[in-house]
Each structure stands twice: as structure tokens, then as C-alpha cells.
């Protein structure tokens, strides 16, 4: 089965295509693929289509078409705007609903019976980092940077990043990135086992496509069984993460942190 490319007109945040057994999910919402309500609704559409497409695919590649990077994370401007427009209890319900919806999508990608590859470049921060962490492999161009900047907002990562990074690399790496909020480059990320391949500038998608083509030579049932054997979904910790995020979200420090970020004219707002 071959799927036609999705509609690229209008304000679409993402599009996907299935060709030669490889699903390619492209992110293209300026300025840097911030994940808000528009992106989430489209991710849900993608998730529904993924269930159908995965019958005739062996790999999924997620990449960004924007020069600025893979994804700068959650849409903090939208989060702040909504928190200002409604009362506390309604805003909190909205946040929990958003988190539960995005967790459903990301858990589906994490457990998909395909081999999944994040082809990243530039900024891979916060929710963008968490999206990449759902993939089986991360292929990074040498200018990619990874970061959990949430603590400076008084929050924790909310899209499953902590349990997934802990599952893949262990508690010490989580503590380093989470508690310092520092960003690391692709070379360092490869040294600690996060990134499987580091490639030249602008080469991550090409390398991911080459890898995905190679995966098509393997017996699919075996590859799926191998993935299921080695990659568990940390369901309990993912639930706890949502609860903790919501608990922290109600604190005044979070509103202050969001306001500071949104209103910042600093030259380095991405630097914690």
C-alpha cells in the first residue's frame, strides 16, 4: 500500500507519506515545531493513520523540514495564553487532558511494531527531545543539541521524557540533564548512548533513510518480536509523570516562569 503525501497547504504542522515500506513524518510548523493544540490534533490524526499504515511498513522516520531544528518543545506561548484566559481549575483540567492525549500518541509511536528513527538537527529541546526519545534510534547531525529546560519554568518534562530517558540510559543521565537544564551536543549524546549515529550538517535525514532501507531487508516478525522483547513502555512512571506535572503546574512559580519566558527579549532565551 502506498499513501499519498498529506495536504501541505494552509497551517499544517505535520505531514506524512508511506513509500517503499518507510513512513516519513515531517514536522514543519514555524518557528521550530513547537507542540501545541494544532500539532497535537495532527499527531492524533497521524497516530490513527499509523495503525493503518504499519501493516505495510517496516520503518518510521520522524524529521523536521525547518532549518531551525527538530523541535523546540511544547508551545509555551499557547500554554501561558490559556492559563491567563481561564480559571485555575479549568486550566489545570486542560493541561491534564493535553498531557493524556499526547502521551497516548507518543506511547503508540514508542511501541509501534516498526523500527522508528528520529532524524534530528539543531534544537531538540523539551517536548522535541521527548518526541525523539520515543524512537528506537536517534540519528543526529553534528549541530543537534538536546536539552530538558523545564526546570527553569518550575516544571518537569511532561511528555514522557524522564521515564523514557531513564529506561534507555539510566538515572544518572536523567539527573544530569534534568537538574542542570544544560544542553548537550550530538557528539556528547552519542558518547552517553543516546544517539546511534552522528552525521554531517544536513545529513541526518539521508542517513535515516539509508538506515530505514537497510531495515527493510530483515524479517519483520522477528524485528517486531526483538523490539517488543527489549523495549518496554514504562507505564507506571509515565502516569506518575503526568500527576507530578499537574501538581507542579498549579504553583505560582510556574506562571511566573512562563511569563518570564514569553515576555523575554533576552538574546539567549533558550539558555537556562
Amino acid at each position: 500500500m502506498e499513501a499519498a503525501p498529506a495536504d501541505r497547504s494552509g497551517e499544517k504542522a505535520l505531514s506524512w507519506v508511506l513509500k517503499d515500506g518507510i513512513i516519513e513524518l515531517a514536522l514543519h510548523r514555524a518557528p521550530c515545531n513547537e507542540l501545541g493544540s494544532v500539532s497535537l490534533a495532527e499527531l492524533e490524526n497521524f497516530a490513527a493513520d499509523l495503525r493503518r499504515m504499519q501493516e505495510s511498513a517496516h520503518a518510521l522516520v520522524i524529521y523536521s523540514e525547518l532549518k531551525s531544528g527538530f523541535c523546540a518543545g511544547a508551545d509555551l506561548r499557547e500554554l501561558y495564553r490559556r492559563s491567563q484566559e481561564m480559571d485555575k481549575a479549568t486550566a489545570l483540567r486542560g493541561v491534564r487532558d493535553f498531557l493524556e492525549r499526547i502521551h497516548r500518541v507518543l506511547n503508540l509511536i514508542d511501541a509501534a511494531p516498526l523500527t522508528t528513527i528520529a532524524a534530528v538537527h539543531g534544537v531538540t529541546f523539551g517536548g522535541g527531545f521527548e518526541l525523539a526519545l520515543t524512537c528506537d534510534l536517534i540519528i543526529a547531525d553534528k549541530l543537534a543539541r538536546f536539552c530538558f529546560p523545564e526546570l527553569r519554568l518550575g516544571l518537569i518534562p511532561g511528555f514522557g521524557g524522564i521515564p523514557r530517558l531513564k529506561r534507555d540510559l539510566g538515572n544518572a543521565v536523567v539527573r544530569d540533564l534534568l537538574l542542570t537544564g544544560r544542553s548537550i551536543n550530538a557528539v556528547k549524546a552519542q558518547q552517553i548512548g543516546l544517539v546511534s549515529q552522528v552525521v554531517g550538517e544536513g545529513e541526518s535525514l539521508r542517513a535515516a533513510r539509508a538506515t530505514a532501507a537497510q531495515l527493510g531487508k530483515f524479517d519483520r516478525a522477528t524485528a517486531t518480536a526483538a523490539k517488543r522483547f527489549i523495549k518496554s513502555i514504562p507505564q507506571d512512571e509515565l502516569r506518575q509523570e503526568i500527576d507530578l506535572f499537574c501538581e507542579l503546574y498549579t504553583r505560582p512559580a510556574v506562571q511566573a516562569g512562563l511569563r518570564k519566558f514569553v515576555e523575554s527579549s533576552a538574546a539567549q532565551p533558550y539558555l537556562p
Binding site: G122, L143, A144, T180, S183, N185, Y270, L271, P272
Partner: peptide
């Protein structure tokens, strides 16, 4: 801008083979 500053930081880290925490 801020994103290009991160590119510069990465270039410098790669060139000098160091880690320079962005803070």
C-alpha cells in the same frame, strides 16, 4: 539569534573538543 547562538556553541565545542555548559 538565540538558535544560531546554539549553533555557534556546538561548533565551538566540536572544534575545541570540549563541553561548555550553556549556563
Amino acid at each position: 539569534d538565540s538558535l544560531q547562538t546554539l549553533d555557534l556553541l556546538t561548533k565551538l565545542e566540536n572544534h575545541f573538543r570540549i563541553e561548555l555548559p550553556d549556563y
